Simulated assay, not measured.
Amino acid sequence: MKTAIQALIMASSFCQRIKRERVESHPLLKGDRSPVTIADYGSQAIINKLMKERFPNDPIVAEEDAEELKKAENLEILNQVTHYVNEFIPRVSSKEICSWIDWSTSSVKKRFWTLDPIDGTKGFLRGDQYAIALALIEEGEVQIGLLACPNLYVDKDQPDGKKGCLFFAMVGNGAFQMDMESGEKKSLSVSRIESPEGAIFTESVEPDHADHLIHKKVAKRLNVLSPPILMDSQAKYGIVARGEATVYIRVPSPSDPHYREKIWDHAAGALIAKEAGGKVTDILGRPLDFSCGLRLEKNRGILVTNGVLHETILKALENLVII
């Protein structure tokens, strides 16, 4: 856990440095038209390097690779990645950095780490929420989960206060939040709200990431009074874990109703929410199965609650979701 925490804190500092200096201008577009940035590449390089030094035999299943970065037309971006990584790990070449990025594999073993170097890249580009997510999976079960949220306020009651927190959990040991500046840690516990009217939902900012209309219908059925917290990335798991939100719901977007979630988008957050006392399933009530490769092939959508309201939310989803 210590190495993983150190790796995420260094990657967070790297990403924040990129934002402070307004380095990002034109992110590369991957095959699925999603953006990938200097920060994505540098974050993955740093974390892969530190984790491989400590756990040389563990595969890392990460979101990015260096294929686009190594193309001649992207030399300027590669040079920027190299420049900024050298501020954190001195005297390394572009070739070495690309090799660190490409230590990632798509082959899922009995034991492996899964990494999203920037979960919520669009949020990062807007200056909103994003997360750096790392999880250890063994035999299809998440054993360790960490989420670094550099832009998330540390105190849930002071959203305009100090930012920069890291959530982490280990199976059977509870969930914790650490102030990345001071190192102060505190244990986490989900909200104990029992009435749906008092629940606070959280959902993605981007409308194409989920079916916000279905979410609204669920809230209406339950007479939920508060508007949802719109937030990018797995930071949503963090705010459920610390009792700030009660329900995180993610019904697949109608533009892609058969979409299956990627493991690195949920592994770390799911464990953190569960270890804080919450419940995590898909929208049909099935546990998340991380043994099927790079995607949650046996699951549809995501539902995270404080546990108390889980069955109530599943009931409200009935007849709204076409299977």
Rank of each mutant, 00 (worst) to 15 (best):
T121H: 01
G123E: 01
Q129W: 07
Q129R: 15
Y130T: 08
Y130A: 01
A131W: 05
A131Y: 12
A131M: 03
A133N: 04
L134R: 04
L136S: 02
I137Y: 08
I137C: 08
I137M: 11
E138I: 00
E138L: 00
E139K: 00
E139M: 00
E141T: 03
Q143G: 04
I144C: 04
L146P: 08
L146H: 02
C149N: 12
P150W: 10
P150L: 05
N151V: 02
N151Y: 12
Y153F: 06
V154E: 09
V154C: 02
D157V: 06
D157C: 06
P159K: 15
D160M: 08
G161T: 11
G161W: 09
G161S: 13
K162I: 07
K162H: 14
K163I: 13
K163F: 04
G164C: 11
C165N: 09
C165S: 13
C165Y: 08
C165D: 11
F167W: 07
F168V: 14
A169F: 05
M170L: 10
M170S: 15
G172S: 04
G174D: 10
F176W: 00
Q177A: 13
M180S: 08
E184D: 12
E184K: 14
E184L: 12
K186W: 10
S187H: 13
S187V: 04
L188Y: 14
V190E: 03
R192M: 13
P196K: 09
F201I: 12
F201W: 07
T202W: 03
E203N: 14
S204W: 01
S204I: 02
S204P: 15
E206G: 00
D208V: 00
A210P: 00
D211V: 10
D211H: 07
H215D: 05
K216C: 10
K217T: 10
A219R: 11
K220F: 09
R221S: 13
